[in-house]
Amino acid sequence: MLLEARDITKAFGSFKAVDDASVTLEQGDILGLIGPNGAGKSTFFNCLTGDLKTTSGRVLLEGRDITDVTPELRAGLGLARTFQVPQTFEGMTVLENVMIGAFLRTAHRKEAETKARAVLERVGMSRLADAPARSLGTPGRKRLEIARALATEPKVLLLDEAMAGLNAHEVKLAIDLVREIHRSGITLVIVEHIMEVIMSLASRVMVFHQGKEIARGSPREVTSNPAVIEAYLGKRAAKAAAGRTPAELMGGPDL
């Protein structure tokens, strides 16, 4: 087992944003976290990365308890993430942004630079290496987030809405990139709103609603689950929708 979350609860005051959620992740998995807005998937995600402290529950990476480990040390252990709103280092070039990730495994500038260039090549951004990062638009920034995370040589990569704000063509390119990353042996956790992305990428899906896990399984199983449809569309719509394919109802761009 690569990554495991046991009975995670995260409360803000008396409000439980995540209520007793558990998940296990095997090497080679692509786990999709979905749910309506405010369902708690991002909170759960941030508990896995260490950005938020859990109220109760444990997080284990390769059997080691990392619940109280800081985000920077989790990165060292092989956990990398991207941000929903790209946290680009505005004052740096694209290459330097990626070098920050590469510096995790080497203290030498030359080595970090060589590695960062290789990562940029891999994600198809090498021509932008010396451009100031602030000149990138949303698609570029999203891709840069992934490049930086890859430069840390992660075992598990957590993508927080890496496709949000992209058009259909850009989503396709991003899906290809995620597939390529998966083929290279990196296990993935993806939080995503776009159903199509989950359907085409995830091997397993976990559905959140009001802080609780309401369904899990393969993308097909989950999307035909009445509880899931109800969470997304409400009770009446769920009845009306009986017999239709859920992916159709939940939208997402036609690809």
Partner: peptide, 16 residues
Amino acid sequence: RAIKDSERAARSLGAP
């Protein structure tokens, strides 16, 4: 320089 721009992102990339 990374911390100056986004401490959270810097930490997520392993910068103490």
